[in-house]
Design a protein around this nucleic acid. Structure first.
Lengths: 106, 106
DNA sequence: CGGAATCCTATATGATACTG
DNA sequence: CAGTATCATATAGGATTCCG
């Protein structure tokens, strides 16, 4: 169920790849939350009003695959999982700041 | 059929607005084509390999609504319509350039 | 606590035919 | 030439239930 993203072929532009990495109903908000520091799964869910566990898990996994966030699992009962931005994820700041500024003009 | 985008309410972040403005299967490519100058509808369709007339029209209209591109209609037979980037649309360049650079790291 | 699995709806995208 | 209109499919998003 992976490793074959583009099925009907088209030249993939790096800008498009980047765009997809931050596209998604909750990614910008997850990124924003993690920008303020390491967060546990439950904390994120409480902060992101309305998100379901499924969507949170899904968006987090995609961001992890893209190398934007890091997932740290603590093997204990009850489970504890912490999420944080990777250096690459933090490097999105100027881009998202610029988008934020651009967005205010729309 | 408009003027009520977000139906089930959520604070709209400017960055999210900006993101939506450039999200879409063909928008980045349309933007890239127009970056090189004014283009007619047919020229765009030939450049964007595989795009249908419907999708080209749709994406162009959305970009026009967002103020990213300008549509100039020449009332003549046969019809002639030219598309170009607005100053706002050109102001996306640093953002898309940055996304392009970011994307090469993914 | 942090998921996975299943089912369902909404939106985006696409193929095709027609038109002023 | 530059569109519209209609229909079909693909993908994203969400509700709910179950689990180690």
């Amino acid at each position: 169920m992976e490793a074959k993203s583009q099925s009907h072929e088209r030249k993939t532009c790096p800008a498009e790849t980047a765009l997809k990495a931050i596209s998604g109903r909750w990614k910008l908000f997850i990124w924003g939350e993690l920008l303020t520091g390491v967060k546990r799964f439950g904390e994120l869910q409480r902060s992101l009003n309305g998100i379901t566990q499924k969507m949170l898990t899904q968006q987090l996994r995609e961001m992890e695959e893209d190398g934007i966030i890091h997932r740290e699992v603590y093997l204990q009962i009850p489970p504890k999982v912490e999420y944080s931005l990777t250096p690459l994820g933090e490097s999105l700041k100027p881009i998202i700041d610029a988008m934020h500024e651009f967005g205010t003009q729309l």
